[in-house]
Design a protein around this nucleic acid. Structure first.
Lengths: 366, 366
DNA sequence: CTGAAAGCGCTTACAG
DNA sequence: CTGAAAGCGCTTACAG
C-alpha cells in the first residue's frame, strides 16, 4: 500500500490540480471555511446557505446548485457544535447499555455506526448500572447536558420503565431493542427471542428427545421469559411439555449454568437434552457434563442462545440460536434518524433469530 | 428496588425539601439554567462565573465559594456545545480502532470511560479500515469536523504512521496504545507484549519442553513481532532456541491457527508445545490436536495470548497471557485529559502482561 | 481580582 | 424564494 509522504497538510482532494478560486481561498486561509465564506463566494446570504445545508424546499433549484457547487469545491462542512447550539440539540446519538456480552455490544455499535455512515451524526457510548442509586440522575445528566439527538437502549436496560419515563419526560427520542413489544412500535426493535427458542425446541423434539430441560436467565430479564415461553411452546407443538422440575432459573453466567446442569444431571430420570438461555450457560453445561464423564452429544444434547464467537470454538461446536444483532443496531439507528424526516414509513421493526445447528445435538441414546 | 413513580419531571435532588431561591427559580423556568442565570443570582459577571467553571486562579476565594454554591444549588452545568464553540475545541474524545477482538474493544472503551467519569468529556467511537482508500480522508474529516479534544488509537491502527502524521499536522492530541514505543513517551501507552511472551517461554521451558513451536500473528502487526521476540528471548534464557521450522506466521484467526497447527503436528519430530500469538489461534490449535487424536496437555501443551473469555471456557482451560486492557484504556485517557493541565507528571505509561497458568500446559510425555 | 464588548458558526423568528 | 437582525451559551482578548 503506497504511503502518502511529505504532504501532511494537504487533503487528497485539495491536492488535485487546477484548484478554482474557492479552493484557492481555502488554501490561503489555512482554516476550514465557514458558512460566511460560502455565502460570500456564492453571492447569497448565509441564511440561504443554511437552507441548502438543511435541505429546505424554499430554495430555487438554480441557487441550490450554485451553492452546493461552492460547498463542494471549498470542502465546506458545517460545524456540528455551532449547528447544535443554534438547533438546541446535538448531532450525537447515545447508546446506553448494560449487557455483559462484549460481542453483543460491539455488534450493536457496529450496526448503529452502519446507519450513521454518511450522516453528520456521531455515536457516544454509555454503559450503565441499573442498580446504582444515581442511575436515573446520571442518565438524565448525560442526555440533557449533551442535548442528545436520541438514544438507543439495548437489553436489559431497554426494559427499564423508569428510564423510559425519564427520557419521555425530557423529550429525548429513544429506540428500545427488546425481545417483546414494551412500547409504541415506532420506539421498538423487537427480536422475537420467542421464535428462536421455539426453533430450538422443535429441533430437540425432532431428534427424538423427551426428557428435555431448560436453564433460563434471571427473571429480571425479559428475554429469559420470552425464551422459556417460546421453548415451552415449541415443545407443546410436538406434544411435549416442559416439566417444572426440569426448568431451572440461573443467571446467564458460566458458573450458574455449571451449577444448574450439575443439579439436572443428578436427577432421575436424567434429562437427555438441555436448552440453555445463552451460550455462557451452555459452556457451563459442557463443563458439568465433562466432569460427570458424559459425552456431548452422545449422552447429552446442548443448545445455547446468542451464537457468540465461543460457540464455534468449544468442542463440540455448539448448536445455538443466532440473533442478527448488527442489523438490530442498524435498524434502531435508522429509525431514530429517520423519525425526524418526512417519509418516516413504518419500517421493518422485527427481527427473527435463526437456529444454527452444529455438533452438540444428536438423537438421544437408545 | 423501589421505583420512583409519578415524579417524572423532578430530579432526585430537586425533590428535596426547602429549596432555596436559586432552585426555586430553576423550577419556575422549567429549563436548565445558563451562565447568565448564575451570574445574575451570584451578582457577578458571567465572565467571573466562567472563571470559576474553568478553575481560573484569578478569582477571590470568597467569590469562588459563593458562585460555586449557586451553581450547585441551581444544578447548573455548562453547555458543552457552547463551550466547545467558544473554545474552538469539543469535549469529545475519539477512540479509533480496527482490532477484531470484541472483548479488547469493549475493555478499552471501559477503561477510557473510567478515566472520563466525573469529567465533562464524552467518548465517541470510530472503527476504521486501514486498507480503505478513503481511510486518511475519513479520519481527517472525523477529527476536524468534531474538533476532537484528542484521540486514543488502539492496535493495530496505533501503528499507522500516516495517521499519526496526519493528526500531528492538524494538531490533534493523540495517545497510542502499542506493544513498543513508536513515538514520544507522552503519546504512548506501552504494553510490553515482549515480557508476556517471555513469561510463556519460561513457563514452557520450566516444564521441560524442548521441541517448542510458535504460531505468530501477521507480520503487519507490531505485536506479532514483539511476541515472537519475547518468546525467543525467554527460550534463550533457558538455553533453548526457537527453530525457524517451528516458527510459523499466521493471521490471528481461528482458521489460521488450525492450519498451522496441522502443519506442526505433521512434522518429525513433532513439537510438544505450542505458543500461539493469541487465544483465537490457540483455539484453532485445540481443534487440530483433537482432530489428530492428541490430548491436551498430555500430548501437546498450548499457551495463548489475550486471556479472552473463551480461554477459560474451552476444555481444558487455556494457559494464556493477560493484558490489563481496561487499565491501558484508562491510562491513555488520563494522559490525554491531563496533558492540558498543569501537573502533567510523567505518569506510569507502561503495562506488564501476566501469565495465567491453567490446564493446557504440562510436562512433555516421557 | 473583575467586567463590558465582541465573537465562535450556525439557526430561528420576522420581514419582504 | 431570499435576507438582515437577533440569539443559542459560552470564551477570548482587552481594559481597568
Amino acid at each position: 500500500m503506497p504511503v502518502t509522504q511529505g504532504k501532511r497538510k494537504s487533503s487528497s482532494s485539495a491536492a488535485k490540480a487546477g484548484a478554482p478560486s474557492a479552493r484557492a481561498e481555502a488554501q490561503r486561509n489555512r482554516k476550514r471555511p465557514t458558512i460566511n465564506d460560502i455565502a460570500r463566494l456564492a453571492n447569497v446570504s448565509k441564511k440561504t446557505v443554511s437552507r441548502v445545508i438543511n435541505d429546505s424546499p424554499f430554495v430555487k433549484e438554480e441557487t441550490r446548485k450554485k451553492v452546493n457547487a461552492i460547498i463542494h469545491e471549498a470542502g465546506f462542512a458545517p460545524d456540528p457544535q455551532a449547528r447544535g447550539l443554534a438547533f438546541r440539540r446535538s448531532f450525537l446519538i447515545g447508546m446506553i447499555y448494560d449487557n455483559p456480552s462484549a460481542q453483543y455490544i460491539v455488534n450493536m455499535q457496529q450496526g448503529i455506526l452502519d446507519a450513521m455512515r454518511g450522516t453528520s451524526f456521531e455515536l457516544v457510548i454509555r454503559p450503565c448500572d441499573r442498580g446504582s442509586p444515581s442511575f436515573l440522575d446520571d442518565m438524565r445528566a448525560f442526555v440533557e447536558r449533551q442535548k442528545l439527538f436520541g438514544v438507543v437502549l439495548s437489553p436489559s436496560v431497554s426494559e427499564d420503565e423508569r428510564l423510559v419515563r425519564l427520557l419521555d419526560g425530557i423529550e429525548c427520542p429513544l429506540m428500545r431493542v427488546a425481545s417483546v413489544a414494551l412500547g409504541p412500535p415506532e420506539t421498538m426493535v423487537i427480536t422475537h427471542d420467542y421464535e428462536g427458542a421455539a426453533e430450538a425446541a422443535r429441533h430437540l423434539a425432532g431428534l427424538g428427545h423427551k426428557l428435555i430441560a431448560h436453564i433460563s436467565g434471571p427473571a429480571t430479564f425479559r428475554s429469559a421469559h420470552e425464551r422459556r415461553r417460546g421453548f415451552a411452546e415449541g415443545l407443546a407443538e410436538r406434544g411435549l411439555t416442559l416439566q417444572p422440575k426440569y426448568d431451572l432459573e440461573a443467571a446467564y453466567t458460566f458458573e450458574s449454568g455449571l451449577a444448574r446442569t450439575q443439579t439436572l444431571l443428578a436427577m432421575v430420570p436424567r434429562p437427555t437434552a438441555i436448552f440453555a438461555g445463552n451460550d455462557e450457560m451452555a459452556a457451563g453445561a459442557y463443563k458439568a457434563a465433562r466432569d460427570a464423564g458424559l459425552d456431548i452429544p452422545r449422552d447429552l444434547s446442548v443448545v445455547g442462545f446468542d451464537d457468540s464467537p465461543m460457540a464455534s470454538r468449544v468442542w463440540p461446536p455448539l448448536t445455538t440460536v443466532r440473533l442478527p444483532i448488527r442489523d438490530m443496531g442498524r435498524i434502531a439507528a435508522e429509525k431514530l434518524i429517520g423519525a425526524g424526516k418526512k417519509g418516516a414509513k413504518a419500517e421493518l421493526t422485527e427481527v427473527i433469530p435463526t437456529l444454527v445447528v452444529r455438533e452438540s445435538t444428536a438423537k438421544p441414546a437408545a
